[in-house]
Design a protein around this nucleic acid. Structure first.
Lengths: 127, 127
DNA sequence: TCTCTTATTAGGAATCGTTACTGATAAGAT
DNA sequence: ATCTTATCAGTAACGATTCCTAATAAGAGA
């Protein structure tokens, strides 16, 4: 009943590398389609299994978006997200310190995630 | 090609009523199981369809939780959520005003949602 | 209040994202 | 180099949600 030791395979490395280099918060299918170009016999279930492991090991972030499928973020530096309600793009943005007075009434706050909704620069400029 | 007018049915009314009276942020299955006790031939698809309509019409909130299924909130007053990482309970908490400087770099912020993670009072007291 | 239009319903089939299972493979410890 | 076993590809199974159809009922107009 010991925890199995984890191995770094070329499939897992490719997924991690892809996430670290991308800024568009892809989902499992995006990652699968993209990496299949490089590793043609990559399997979908391998992508899902490794995304699970990597986020368990805190090497990537599984995002809590209102979406029909899970999205992942290779940026583990503390940050928030800005979601454009016009074009749907998700941007990373810096993390200000915020008051937690109201939340502290519920319990001890360890961490928080903020999702900002609005219109991004690009969509604003189009008008 | 005109937008169809919406009707208030007893099924939809029951779902809305249930959400307005509950504070535990139920999912579709919770709502279905609970309302089936009152309306035995209620259908699952009716619950899903009405949850979709109600959140489109902003009468309820579809929450963006990291969960395998969608959760709904009948409280439409602006507020945030505190999620206990020990017991999993979700609490409502008041909305402080927060700095949006970092987010404004991405675009015009209309609204935001904060998810606080930590240990709730009840779990803290147990130790 | 009665009628009529049509949005909504119950129930089941279909879809889609994700997970579980299998025998084959390869990471990395000895 | 060898050996153990975590990981693999491929596919079947699963669960949450959506779609489909004929029957029903909301609610507008007479």
């Amino acid at each position: 009943m010991t925890t199995p030791s984890r191995r770094m395979t070329k499939q897992k490395a490719a997924i991690l590398e892809y996430l670290k280099c991308s800024t568009h918060h892809p989902d499992a299918e995006n990652i699968y389609q993209e990496l299949k170009k490089i590793q043609p016999d990559l399997s979908r279930s391998t992508v899902y299994r490794n995304l699970g492991q990597l986020s368990q090991d805190k090497l990537i972030d599984k995002m809590g978006l209102q979406s029909e499928c899970d999205h992942y973020d290779g940026n583990c530096f503390p940050h928030n997200h800005f979601i454009c309600t016009k074009c749907g793009k998700i941007y990373d943005c810096g993390k200000d310190s915020i008051p937690t007075d109201e939340a502290e009434k519920c319990g001890k706050v360890d961490t928080f995630a903020i999702y900002f909704y609005g219109t991004c620069q690009a969509c604003n400029d189009k008008e």
